[in-house]
Amino acid sequence: MSHSSPPPRSETEHVPATGLVARAAALVSERPTIALSGTLVILVIVTGIIEPNYLAVSGVRNTLLQAAPLGILAGAQTILMLTGGIDLSVTMVATASAYVAANQSPSGAAVAILLGVVVGLVVGSANGVGVAVFRVNPLIMTLAMSGILLGLFTAWAQTILKGSTQVGPFIKLIGAGSFLGNRIPYSVVVWAVIAAALIWLLRRTGWGRLLYAIGDNEIAVRLAGVRVWQVRITAYIAAGVLGSIGGILLGGRTGAVDLQLANAFLLPSVAAAVIGGTSIFGGVGGYAGTILGALILSVLNSMLTFLNVGQAIQQVVYGAIVLALAWGYAGLTRRA
């Protein structure tokens, strides 16, 4: 009795391409990467017009120094959002890792970085067990974890973590230094390696396939014989480790750490993934888009700084972008 469904049509046939908005929407849904790259170029040019010095080497470098940690934290969100989850503790993990790394810096860079990453491993595992085994809602689990971490580290800063809040010279170098005549920051190299690994994981491994599958229909994946909890826990662990690395880079960039280090990155980390086309509801998206999202937000940040817009207003802008995109993408999916 069933009819075969009509052959798939491109978005343009559904959306009458009359208004500029409709045309833009069609472009975004058909060629997201091109649309995002276009947006990025336009933003760079506009920023260059506002502040001609921006297009010089140092301006771009500053943007990249900002984009690298953001892109890495947004990588954590991308992985989790693909599974239908989210990590609101990622910035607290980043802060905590940087704090531990700074504290341990007198023991040498290797130990400092290693112990910093251990923080991410432990917190990520706890988040993963909470969400996957005890079925706590990801928002609640990671929000609570963020509160717990803040409390613990506030207490520990006076006790067991008393001491250095300055990161060692090696961490400073990879966080803030650059090479090739001061053009390319080391942190961008770290980001590039992580980006390549993430894109490979998401596109060319079974684990990546399962992340998308779980985000789309967890029950079906379970009935297909996958132990979903394993996938979820490993995803939260990966997110925790990415949070640590992002945090250590941030710590290196600022040189000294405090417990507010990565606070301002929470909303942008989600925003970068959403701008890049990863759905908050899971199953749709990828890291390439997130990279562009992180770059767009960083350029936007530079632009707002040149316009003398304060941190508070920047947060308003990020919030507005996330809302507008969530609404816009919801509209696109409904039409599809």
């Binding site: 599958a213 789309d216 229909n217 079906a220 009935l223 297909a224 199953g283």
Partner: peptide, 8 residues
């Protein structure tokens, strides 16, 4: 609904 990944 128990077997498909509808958006993939």
């Amino acid at each position: 609904l128990l077997s498909l990944l509808p958006n993939l």
